[in-house]
Design a protein around this nucleic acid. Structure first.
Length: 564
RNA sequence: AGGGGAGUAGUUCAGCUGGUAGAACGCGGGCCUUUGGAGCCCGAUGUCGCAGGUUCGAGCCCUGCCUCCCCUGCCA
């Protein structure tokens, strides 16, 4: 558990309402929430807030949170999405127990309720075309006009509805509408459509139904059936609340309280299902779980932890105002968690050969490395050291500037857990590039400290060339270089904001032998570099591929950025 | 006279019954360090959307205004 999670949970206006209701006994002390995704896409970082909110409230107030799929539109929904959503919610650390429901579970009941409204003269079958309905709805400023079919007799409506259900009519030929108020300033109340004809197979009910309920005629009643107390949704449904209440009240059924909050946005990314789908379909990323994607699957594959994502959601809180959270906060949260739990390893990403001239030929020794300085129980491991090593190319400069205090000609540096080495000679190829460093080591400095007390400023990571595991390492930058990819110039497209080089593949990289057996999904800190996660798709037994989750904070790199 | 929301540091949020603004991240500086990691210390930034009003006193109350977001799917 990270600091953020162990700290007193912050409160928000939703929790305050629940707390107040609990205090006054409004719902007899019950607290029932639900997370209601439509199975037509993958969950992303924005959904995480809603998941944490709903499951969090249930946990904090001794209630339950249901997982309910809002599957009322068979043309867009698929079982593949259901499975992915279940996995993602579970992975985030939440458990809905037996409470997995589907709006489609309620199709029979919904149909009975529709007939009830027809009998009560509160719903009618409209023969108008979609176009007509749109035209007669009016505009934001002008009232709509009533359908010529609005006052059909209940018996006729009942008959027509039954025949709609039986598949006697083609798609789009008729709809069932609620009879409310065509002059309402709230467009949602202008005789909203309750059922449409869809000769489409549903992922759960197959071809049983030829008519399907609209969101507005399914969501509130589903909440009602499940005895939900607090139905939390996003701001765009605020205008639907009167309708939510109208259906429950007209039906005379239990009515939960709908509460709306502002969806969370994050910089440098898009979360609209359509855009995410475009990225995948246009092969701009390697699938829904590409490590650059803001999907839960993408974040997981990238190496983010559920703890970090939960801490992130907790810190950004819940409110009603528009917002865009800096991606840097998510990065902070994952560093905070991984710093506490990730085993340290050494890996050299851009290798530079080091030969130790005074090292006995063929000799190998083992040095002991601490697995996690933040967690003594993580223990230590042995790392082979020899006269032929790889170090990071960036850790040497032939002509170092002022604040560079790593290796340079004539200068001494420490190899972590190993020895002090001094660079005596720089070997170059014909092109004048540095290809090798000839160094000498000080035998007295084994383990990394000098008996004479002399200091070196820099500690370098390294790998013994004869023992190294060659690996591939993948570095990621945000898919979009700009904070708000949705902001485009006149006539532009959001795709214009796509960063050209968001993926960098490094190979060969050399890792300490320990890493050969790293399992897919395992996370490590590569010392001085960042946190890395074994890729679940590209790794092969004995040949892990690493994804960089996030870099370590790097003062030197920051300096460079400022100067450059 | 459409309806519904929202406006507090760069960002995300606190600020409960009015007493001259806080946290976190980010940013700047320093200390420390066998990860230039981690940790620790210090610091800067707000005309609390604007304008009036009530009050000894207003981010909080009142009035008017401004700006931004959502709503005219047989999507959710």
């Amino acid at each position: 558990m990270t600091n953020a999670e162990s700290a007193k949970p912050r409160t928000d206006f939703v929790r305050e309402i629940v707390a107040e209701d609990t205090r006054t006994g409004k719902w007899e002390g019950r607290v029932v929430t639900r997370f209601p995704p439509e199975p037509n896409g993958y969950l992303h970082i924005g959904h995480a807030s809603s998941i944490c909110l709903n499951f969090g409230i249930a946990a904090e107030f001794g209630g339950v949170c249901h997982l309910r799929f809002d599957d009322t539109n068979p043309v867009k929904e698929e079982d593949e999405y259901v499975q992915a959503i279940r996995e993602d919610v579970k992975w985030l650390g939440f458990d809905w127990g037996e409470n997995e429901f589907y709006a489609s579970d309620y199709f029979d009941q919904l149909y009975e309720w529709a007939k009830q409204l027809v009998r009560d003269g509160k719903a009618y079958v409209d023969d108008q075309s979609a176009d007509d309905i749109r035209r007669t709805r009016g505009t934001l400023k002008e009232p709509g006009t009533e359908s010529p079919w609005r006052n059909r007799a209940p018996e006729e409506n009942l008959d027509l509805l039954e025949r709609m259900k039986n598949g006697e009519f083609p798609d789009g030929s008729r709809v069932l509408r609620a009879k409310i108020d065509m002059a309402s300033p709230n467009l949602n109340m202008r005789d909203p459509v309750m059922y449409r004809i869809l000769h489409a197979n549903h992922h759960r009910t197959g071809d049983t139904w030829r008519i399907y309920p609209m969101y507005d005629f399914a969501h509130g009643q589903s909440d009602s059936i499940e005895r939900v107390t607090h139905s939390v949704c996003t701001l765009e449904f605020e205008d639907h609340r009167p309708l939510y209440e109208w259906f429950c009240d007209s039906l005379g059924i239990y009515r939960p309280q709908q509460i709306e909050f502002a969806r969370r946005n994050t910089t440098h990314t898009v979360t609209s299902k359509r855009k995410l789908l475009d990225l995948v379909r246009e092969n701009r990323v390697d699938g829904w779980d590409d490590p650059r994607m803001p999907t839960i699957g993408g974040l997981r594959r990238r190496g983010f932890t559920p703890e970090a994502i939960r801490a992130f959601c907790d810190r950004i809180g819940i409110a009603k105002r528009g917002n865009t959270v800096e991606f840097a906060l998510l990065e902070h949260c994952v560093r905070e968690h991984l710093n506490a739990v990730a085993p340290r390893r050494m890996a050299v990403l851009r290798p530079l050969k080091v030969t130790i001239s005074n090292w006995p030929k063929g000799r190998t020794v083992e040095v002991e490395g601490v697995n996690n300085p933040e967690d003594e129980s993580a223990g230590t491991r042995m790392i082979p050291f020899s006269g032929s090593l790889w170090i990071e190319r960036d850790d040497f400069m032939e002509d170092p500037p002022k604040k560079f205090f790593r290796l340079a000609p004539g200068r001494e540096a420490r190899l972590r857990y190993g020895y002090f080495i001094r660079c005596d000679e720089v070997v170059k190829n014909d092109a004048g590039e540095v290809v090798e460093l000839i160094c000498t080591y000080d035998p007295e400095t084994k383990g990394g400290s000098a008996p004479d007390g002399r200091k070196v400023k820099a500690t370098l990571h390294w790998v013994s060339a004869d023992h190294a595991v060659a690996t591939e390492v993948r570095h990621y930058e945000p898919l979009f270089a700009v904070e708000n990819p949705n902001k485009v110039a006149e006539g532009g497209d959001w795709r214009d904001n796509l960063a050209p080089d968001s993926l960098e593949v490094l190979s060969p990289c050399y890792a300490e032998p320990e890493l050969a057996t790293a399992m897919p999904g395992e996370r490590f800190q590569f010392e001085r570099l960042g946190y890395y996660c074994v890729d679940t798709r590209m790794s092969k037994p004995g040949a892990p591929v690493f994804n960089r989750t996030v870099t370590l904070r790097d003062e030197w790199a920051k300096q460079q950025r400022k100067n450059g």
